[in-house]
């Protein structure tokens, strides 16, 4: 088998491209319609567990009951955690640097990951109160909120 050593290891660079179309379903469609058409942010309450979930869902994570109701949450919220992204990745929706934060909207029990803008990074802190800036032309996806900014 020695003669195998005369061959330089062979490698190829390729890529796989896949297209898809994700359907948001019952709870998701209702959320995106409200965001796009009325600039309202909705969450899913579970009366059993006394929790309000974002993103909205049709099943309670904790007690498995079916959730049919939706309530308005936010639009104001509180920064729970944040970071400054300083490296570029093709999947990033914005060029670096940008501030990425988890914001708990008023009335919700779970956080929403989104951008912070119109603020110096040095000024951002946990507990900071923020409000959303909506896109003027909204399409029914999460970037209908452009970013959050301080009150």
């Amino acid at each position: 088998m020695d003669d195998l050593n005369q061959y330089q290891p062979f490698e190829v660079d390729q890529h796989l491209t896949a297209h898809g179309n994700y359907w948001a379903g019952r709870a998701g469609s209702r959320f995106y319609r409200a965001l796009r058409d009325r600039r309202r942010i909705l969450g899913s309450p579970c009366r059993n567990c006394r929790k309000v979930f974002w993103p909205p869902r049709s099943i309670c994570t904790f007690c498995f009951s079916e959730l049919r109701e939706m309530v308005e949450i936010g639009p104001l919220g509180t920064v729970e955690t944040f970071t400054l992204v300083t490296y570029a990745e093709p999947v990033h929706p914005r060029p670096a640097p940008f501030i990425y934060a988890v914001i708990r909207l008023d009335g919700a029990d779970t956080g929403m990951a989104h951008f912070l803008d119109e603020v110096e990074y040095e000024r951002v802190h946990v507990g900071m109160r923020v409000r959303p800036v909506f896109a003027p032309q909204r399409k029914g996806n999460i970037l209908d909120i452009l970013y959050f900014k301080p009150l």
Partner: peptide
């Protein structure tokens, strides 16, 4: 099945 997401 546009009326449900994968979870539903």
């Amino acid at each position: 099945r546009h009326d449900v997401d994968q979870a539903e």
